[in-house]
Amino acid sequence: MSLLFALFLIGVILLFAIGIYSLLVTTNLIRVLVSIEVLTKGVTLMLIAVGYATGQMAQAEAYVITIIVIEVILLAIATGIVLGLYRESGDILTHDIPTPKE
């Protein structure tokens, strides 16, 4: 393992830690989306690091482009759902989401 790959790995682990910590402590649904975005940045960085380590950067780049497309669609749909919830309940907190039984 090279020093550069190790540094990338540390960066990925830290980004994951930030995303998971934020997911655990936040109650705002838009903030949940921001945390998911941070987690996705970690995945993207990991793909670039693995592409560098294996010498297959072109393949990694193709995967990164796919992930970016998935990320955008996820965010667009999730933001729409959050705004729909906001219109229904007047707030965007996780504990205000109605359960199916309600």
Partner: peptide
Amino acid sequence: IIMFLMGAPLAAVFELSVC
């Protein structure tokens, strides 16, 4: 910028414009 430095310019452009 990291992607561009690592030799992935197309992914870097996507990341910058989209994300």
